[in-house]
């Protein structure tokens, strides 16, 4: 770790410039709960140029835009969101997903931006953000663009970002009354583990009927998946057993998991369906109160 350089720009323009100047050796530092671990383990080679984004106001602030819409800076920590006065009511599923990351200590540092850009298929916040229909604002040498969250990961450890591009913030859309969301993950232990499967469900209920739904599924494929077929099975239903089973089957059908130390193909596929049903039930219960 000897020949590493560090800078902490005050603006996004400076951060982008630093990343461009680093010519591929640049690494964005948000909470560092992935990056510092990787540095210590030697996965990130010496010669890295660390660009710390925590001094940039836009990336560390939360904006309640009303009607359920929020703008959340990419480097906002889990604890900051947890303590926000209105976020929890608006997006309980997104919040619980972000707050599941690690432990209290990790929560004081870890960000949703880092979780997304670490590009792990098992990242906890990503299925919930995908279900939420969140978009990210990306800024790079060619300016800003707006992208759906599910378009950012390209595979384990890989992103669709162009060289020099930085994720600036997440935008969560406004939702009608009767909406809510939920996130569940399965881990073999109760804490300090990585999702074997993660499932985010975002619903709008009207008169007992599901009028809108989005489902995000993590750890069952090289990237987090938006499961449109599962959403389709839920929309128009009363979330009865048949609809839930059809949605669960849709989740199982899109799974392309691997057998590894964290779970088997058979198990992950089965659990995708189990979590879909359970997360849907929680989201529906919450929606009924909104």
């Amino acid at each position: 770790m000897t020949d590493i350089s560090y800078s902490s720009p005050k603006t996004i323009d400076e951060a982008v410039a630093a990343m461009v100047a680093a010519k591929g050796a640049g690494r964005i530092l948000a909470g560092g709960t992935d990056l510092l671990v990787q540095l210590r383990a030697g996965f990130v080679k010496p010669g890295s140029i660390i660009v710390d984004i925590k001094k940039i106001a836009e990336m560390t602030s939360i904006e309640d835009k009303g009607g359920g819409s929020f703008k959340v800076g990419a480097a906002v920590t889990g604890m900051q969101l947890h303590d926000h006065p209105t976020f929890k009511k608006a997006w309980p599923g997104v919040l619980e997903a972000i707050n599941l990351i690690g432990s209290k200590q990790i929560q004081g540092r870890a960000s949703a931006g880092g979780n997304l850009c670490n590009a792990s298929p098992a990242a906890d916040s990503v299925p919930a953000l995908v279900a939420a229909g969140a978009t990210v604002t990306v800024q790079g040498p060619k300016g800003r663009r707006e992208v759906a969250v599910e378009k950012i990961p390209a595979g384990p450890g890989r992103m669709t970002l162009e060289p020099g591009e930085i994720v600036v913030s997440f935008t969560l859309p406004a939702r009608p009354a009767g909406s809510s969301d939920a996130y569940l993950r399965l881990i073999p232990r109760t804490e300090m583990d990585i999702a074997v499967v993660g499932c985010g469900v975002n619903l709008t209920m009207k008169g007992g009927i599901c009028t809108a739904a989005r489902v995000g599924l993590g750890a069952v494929a090289p990237t987090v998946l938006l499961v449109e077929a599962a959403a389709k099975a839920l929309i128009g239903s009363k979330l009865d057993a048949n609809a839930l089973e059809a949605a669960a089957a849709a989740c199982r059908a899109v799974c392309k998991p691997i057998d590894d130390k964290r779970g088997t193909i058979v198990y992950r596929t089965k659990i995708a369906g189990v979590l879909l049903k359970r997360a849907t039930a929680i989201a529906a219960e919450r929606a009924a109160k909104n």
């Binding site: 232990r189 804490e191 583990d193 130390k261 964290r262």
Partner: peptide
């Protein structure tokens, strides 16, 4: 310790 799963306190 991540994937060699000894119990954690909350278990």
């Amino acid at each position: 310790f991540l994937d060699y799963r000894m119990p954690v306190a909350s278990d």
